[in-house]
Design a protein around this nucleic acid. Structure first.
Length: 718
DNA sequence: GTTAGGG
DNA sequence: CCCTAAC
């Protein structure tokens, strides 16, 4: 029994039924539901039964309980549905008028749905009789025997009503049992008992049980199309939705079915009003709850669930009934108002949002699909295996009573009609590896390879353990190893120190940079693989780096960040081109903030290259300093051919440049061409710079022509 | 893979 | 520094 209720006051009957059974003993791994025996007084008060009354009822129910036990062993989850339905009747009758109206309205909706389903079911049954054989097969001998004999339920029942009236629930159970075992006899009539009946047993039997006949207790929403999900949404909330977001629909439906707002953003399976996350054990409510929360950020995963949309609809209805009931029972005051408001808001949001899916979304989606493809062969194998014992697997898939392990952190993948569980941990291995992972490998190949192996072994473990074995231990294995590696390898930190020293001393070409630091950061943050783990360790920009950046920009031009990085930041491997770009942007911002002059603003709007901050330039590049340090580029052997000296400053450059282009100032063709090629470089340096620079244009050869005047040529101070 | 730009 | 779109 899966209700999240501790104590339930059961008012199933009317005043005539003064006493009811209780003290259900759980026989399957599920959440306990304690029914308290009460007597309904004439004024409607519920008075706890005395011990004597309890004993009397217990004796009375003794025989029936045995049967129920047998049933529950196999169909415990199913039973809960029936109980719920039965309870609902009582609730409706005793509820206040407001809520009753709401419930009635909903139930009307259910009624229609049930009728449809029943029709479809009849068709199914007539075409393929006993197609639910897997389920039938799960009922084991004792129950099976009984169910055979009870096949004539409908006939037998009527005369027995009087004697059984005090135990309508068990009657219902029997009825269900009956039906499952193969009674294809359709129970005629639409389901209206839930709304209007006075717990008539015949009605319970004839109108309710067919609709629960194919309940599996599990709903895997992943298997449904958007349309089906919308249908399910309508059935759950009683209103249409135009939302086409599958995830949203699933979550909303799950919320509705489970009365919970803690619905994971990833996959999940609904089982008896609970969202099963990572296969949380049903018998451990608090753990389940915890698991729910944890699973907010985790994927969950799955056992093989064979459920068609049709089946889903049926079970959905029953779940919905149950949900309403449990809401009532709990005195939760379902706060339909709030929920609906929230629904509307969310729906509005979801409908409004037609945002293009992000790359990550697409990536994850494709990743999922890839998994599905690879899982297909696997699934075929498993399915054929399950065909022998299908129902047991489906109903009690994650129970692992022996190990009592916490089920945790798995990922739901559905393939067609089937869903699978894959360990969530694999995700970490499928992510694009950290940039410095290779570096890490170089330094600690043994550790890393061990980690990788361990991670790879996880699926094997998973598979070997069988269907429902998802434990925290499995997930934690690689983490522990990583922690060990972080703690055990002292030289990791040593490397960091080395790096820092290198950075402080501003040594170039050490070739050691970043490795140590990133290694340390990686191992250190790995156990919390969230956003913080991915974040690069912060490194303040040193003066030298800034200098190099400015040099690089001057040399290669702003925007050629990868080139700058490659050539000027070769020894700062932790600075990416993006970093350079960002830093340059920040420098410019600072510069602008310092000198928000019109001129600069104008330059900024006009030019892609904006003024180099004066403060930086004055610091790093005094007029007499070498602006273009002749780089060690191959083939840049400098042949100083003096004689062609240009003087440029910010105010003169553009005019100079114009004159260069026009060729009016300099007649030499080769030289002019060379100047034109340099014009951009000059602009980079001089535009916006208030300093007056003197350049010497070094031409490897005037004759050689422009080809020699590329970036390889340099400017040297006079 | 690189760059630009928003956050 | 991260993330994403655009190229």
């Amino acid at each position: 029994m899966e209700h999240s209720v501790g104590t339930v006051i059961d008012t199933v009957g009317s005043d005539e039924k003064d006493e009811k059974e209780n003290n259900d003993k759980k026989t399957c791994d599920s959440e306990p539901v304690v029914y308290q025996l009460v007597r309904v007084e004439g004024d409607g008060r519920l008075v706890p039964a005395t011990d004597d009354e309890v004993m009397a009822v217990e004796q009375l129910l003794e025989g029936e309980k045995r049967e129920v036990k047998a049933i529950r062993n196999d169909k415990g989850c199913l039973s809960s549905e029936v109980f719920s339905k039965s309870d609902l009747e009582g609730v409706i009758q005793s509820g206040n008028t407001d809520d009753s109206k709401k419930l009635n309205a909903r139930l009307e909706n259910i009624k229609v749905m049930l009728q449809k389903v029943k029709q479809e079911e009849r068709l199914l049954l007539s075409s393929e009789s006993f197609n639910h054989s897997p389920k039938c097969m799960t009922i084991e001998d004792p129950a099976s025997e009984r169910s055979k004999s009870s096949k004539a339920c409908n006939n037998k029942l009527q005369p027995e009503i009087t004697s059984r009236e005090i135990m309508p629930r068990f009657l219902e159970l029997n009825s269900i049992h009956n039906f499952e075992v193969g009674s294809a006899e359709p129970c005629s009539g639409p389901t209206n008992g839930a709304v209007s009946s006075k717990s008539s047993i015949s009605e319970s039997c004839t109108s309710i049980f067919p609709d629960f006949s194919i309940i599996r207790g599990e709903i895997c929403l992943d298997n449904f199309s958007i349309r089906e999900l919308q249908e399910a949404f309508r059935a759950t909330f009683g209103r249409q939705t135009s939302v086409k977001d599958k995830l949203w629909l699933k979550r909303r439906i799950a919320m509705g079915l489970t009365n919970s707002r803690h619905v994971p953003s990833t996959s999940f399976t609904i089982k008896d009003n609970n969202i099963i996350l990572s296969g949380a054990k049903e018998g451990e409510p608090e753990r389940l709850q915890q698991s729910k929360n944890e699973a907010e950020s985790l994927s969950m995963s799955i056992r093989v669930i064979n459920a068609s949309p049709q089946e889903f609809k049926t079970s959905l209805n029953s779940n919905m009934t149950d949900q309403q009931l449990s809401g009532k029972r709990l005195g939760l005051s379902p706060s339909n108002h709030d929920v609906n408001d929230e629904n509307c808001q969310m729906e509005h949001c979801a409908a409004k949002r037609m945002r293009k899916p992000t790359k990550r979304y697409i990536e994850e989606l494709s990743e999922l699909e890839t998994r599905e493809c690879t899982a297909k062969s696997y699934s075929c194998m498993k399915i054929s295996e399950y065909s022998h014992f299908p129902s047991k697997r489906q109903i009690k898939p994650v129970c692992d009573g022996k190990t009592q392990r916490r089920i945790f952190s798995t990922r739901h993948v559905s393939v067609g009609e089937f869903s699978f569980e894959v360990p969530y941990v694999l995700r970490t291995t499928t992510r694009r590896p950290r940039k410095n992972f290779v570096d890490l490998m170089e330094y600690y190949p043994a550790t890393i390879s061990h980690m990788v192996k361990t991670a790879v072994m996880i699926p094997a473990l998973e598979e070997g353990k069988g269907n429902g074995s998802r434990s925290r231990e499995i997930v934690s294995v690689p983490v522990q190893i990583l922690q060990q590696s972080a703690a055990g390898e002292g030289d990791v930190k040593m490397n960091t120190k080395t790096l820092n020293r290198e950075e402080d001393l501003d040594l170039d070409d050490k070739g050691l940079d970043a490795n140590g630091d990133t290694t340390y950061g990686y191992a250190n943050t790995r156990p919390a693989p969230k956003a913080s783990a991915r974040r690069k360790h912060h490194r303040a920009w040193t003066l030298c780096e800034v200098r190099k950046l400015v040099d690089g920009v001057a040399k290669y031009g702003a925007g050629r960040w990868s080139e700058i990085r490659r050539l000027a930041f070769a020894s700062y491997s932790y600075r990416t081109s993006v970093d350079l770009k960002d830093k340059w942007r920040n420098l410019l911002r600072a510069s602008l903030a310092q000198y928000p002059s019109k001129k600069e603003a104008k330059n900024l709007s006009k030019q892609t290259t904006v003024p180099i901050p004066t403060s930086i330039l004055s610091q790093e590049l005094p007029p007499s300093a070498s602006i273009f340090k002749r780089s060690n580029l191959p083939g840049s052997a400098s042949q100083h051919i003096p004689g062609c000296c240009l003087s440029a400053n910010s105010s003169l450059l553009s005019s100079r440049r114009t004159s260069f282009r026009s060729g009016s100032a300099l007649k030499a063709r080769g030289f002019l061409d060379a100047l034109l090629m340099f014009a951009e470089v000059l602009e980079v340096i001089a535009m916006g710079s208030s300093a007056c620079w003197t350049f010497a244009l070094v031409l490897p050869s005037l004759i050689a022509g422009p080809a020699c005047m590329s970036a390889n040529s340099g400017l040297v101070p006079i």
